[in-house]
Design a protein around this nucleic acid. Structure first.
Length: 266
DNA sequence: AAACATTCCAACCGCGAGGTG
DNA sequence: GCACCTCGCGGTTGGAATGTT
């Protein structure tokens, strides 16, 4: 047998949605609720396939969708979850309230992936690239990286992290220093933020570099327990409560999270 | 100002999972 | 177990917006 194509039909419209179509879809769903996507176009008076309606609703029209630039927290969550789960965009998006899988995927592909590559980090493995012209953890003259007691590069390459070498909240890393040095204010929700994103790339890259390397180190640890229950004490973001299990390993992980909490105060 | 290049994201496509009869 | 359907997911693409020459 052959699958019947979803969107076969005469006069079915494709491409960008008009405001008129949006109104029709919103109005129909408000009245009848979601579901039954195959019938929605006909009932709502739309010349679209059901799939297209579902995507339009899920990715754009849903009332609780947050748009605009991703926050540092969100970027970190994406990188960390990607390190442990790979391209499971729907899984990652579930931990980012009001973000859609499509948006997360786009953000990864257009921003985060490139930044990791720029820093010599393989976006697939989250480990330093083999031929790395731009070392993942550059030793700068500022000495900030050197003050980090944990050699994350080595750990990520070895694929494991000993308990002793795990970060501690008091001395875990210089993320806060780096964050504080990133003076560029976030341009929340601004669509004209392209320039800003590139201008702040340098300092942001440092942060991402750090986070990505850490993510690599803890990736295996996370993946083993990601489906577990929660660590309620995590203060980075409530959504992360869904991520981590109550194992002793993850108490160490929360140490890292606590080291990142100053982000909330920026 | 125009032509060309690059970036970005909304939307499309194909596939697989799960449900139903 | 099968055929079929709906839905959701992840990869890809078209084209508008923006940047560069």
């Amino acid at each position: 047998m052959s699958r019947k194509p979803c969107c076969v039909g005469e006069g079915l419209k494709k491409g960008a949605w008009t405001t008129e179509e949006d109104k029709k879809l919103i109005s129909y769903i408000h009245e009848h609720g979601e579901g039954g996507w195959r019938d929605i176009p006909q009932k709502a008076g739309l010349k679209r396939c059901g799939k297209s309606c579902r995507l339009r609703w899920a990715n754009y029209l849903k009332p609780d969708i947050k748009r605009g630039e991703f926050s540092y927290e969100e970027e970190q969550i994406i990188i960390m979850l990607h390190a442990s789960r790979g391209n499971k965009w729907s899984v990652i998006a579930r931990h980012l309230p009001k973000r859609t899988d499509n948006e997360v995927k786009n953000y990864w592909n257009t921003h985060l992936k490139k930044r990791l590559i720029d820093q010599g980090i393989d976006p697939l493995t989250h480990k330093p690239l083999a031929s790395n012209p731009n070392p993942a953890t550059p030793r700068t003259s500022e000495g900030q990286d050197d003050s980090n007691p944990i050699n994350l590069d080595e750990q990520s390459q070895s694929g494991s992290m000993s308990p002793k070498s795990l970060p501690h909240s008091s001395s875990s890393c210089n993320l806060q220093t780096i964050i504080n040095s990133d003076e560029t204010p976030r341009n929340n929700g601004s669509l004209s933020s392209k320039k800003c994103r590139f201008k702040k790339l340098s300092s942001t890259s440092k942060l991402l570099n750090k986070v990505a390397t850490k993510a690599s180190s803890i990736g295996n640890m996370l993946s083993a327990s990601m489906e577990g229950s929660l660590i309620r004490s995590t203060t980075l973001s409530p959504c992360l409560n869904d991520v981590f299990s109550e194992t002793s390993q993850f108490l160490r992980w929360t140490s890292l999270i606590h080291s990142l909490t100053p982000l909330n105060n920026i």
